[in-house]
Amino acid sequence: MIELIGLSKHYDTVRAVDDVTLTIPTGTVTVIVGASGSGKSTLLRLVNGLVTPTSGHVEINGRDTRKIPSHDLRRRIGYAIQDHGLFPHWTAARNIATVPDLLGWPKARVKQRVQELMTLLQLDPAVIGARYPHQLSGGQAQRVGVARALAAEPELLLMDEPFGALDPAIRAQAQSDLKALQVRLGTTVLLITHDMAEAIFLADHIAVMRAGRIEQYGTPADILARPANSFVSGLVAVADRPFRYLSLFSVADFVEDGPADGPPIPADATLSEALARMIWSGQDTLPVAGMADHCIRRHSLIGVAGPPRSGAVR
């Protein structure tokens, strides 16, 4: 468990980060959303000591990080940034090996770990391993950056707009890859972004930040359904908000008894996928794959998607 306790960073009269208290449960993804200048980058840098707090502190599993030498602390916290910051004079493999090397792991173990991570991130160790950063595509460099951050099995992974430099075509793929990776490894992640859709997709918990303060903290469903104030509702009030909300639930949770025709939808598809299919095909019900005599009804989905109404929202 990572705890940010009363963290503040003041530059002269500017309160970049103002009394932020936040708990990140082990194995979950917390996303901080905010515009540029909201203090979210500073907050991230306070966690690994790149910025020294004016007041407050961070605890990792109950241990005050002020008592750990900063370079030791940073070796235990992974860090991935927008323009990846790969060392241009080192190959991809050596970049990934940075922290294990600093920790003095035996050569064989480092090599094995690099191979393992590259495979995990779909980078061919034999081909990509020997390349220099300038020889990598944007997506490859981003994944090498993530592999480097994960190399020494950090207790916490900090990510500063990790997909910001990717073009939209590959960004969605990179986001789902990260999500799958996080589920598989169970890494605790603190990620910052200015993109609410990205936050809703990736987060277990979202903290909306403005002017150095947390405006709202909650699950994606909370933030979408019950924005705490006009600032947060401004961030989530976009045309496809109902679809975003529906995308948080899976078909399996809303299966009802009854027959339906047509091609079945997988039980692990999201409700937004199901609704989109119904609108497109003009059906009111869809059969669910692997579940005979069960279906999902449009009427029920529409009940889920709207703003809070008594009894309609889970």
């Binding site: 690994n48 790149l50 370079h71 030791d72 602390l73 940073r74 070796r75 235990r76 860090y79 940034i81 927008q82 323009d83 990846h84 910051g85 790969l86 060392f87 241009p88 004079h89 940075t98 922290v99 600093l102 480097r148």
Partner: peptide
């Protein structure tokens, strides 16, 4: 590059390691 410099610090290199390695 500022991001390379920041990465070196964030990876947990000591100031001396940052100088000699990066």
């Amino acid at each position: 590059s500022p991001s390379v410099r920041e990465a070196a610090a964030a990876m947990g290199m000591t100031p001396r390691q940052r100088l000699w390695r990066v």
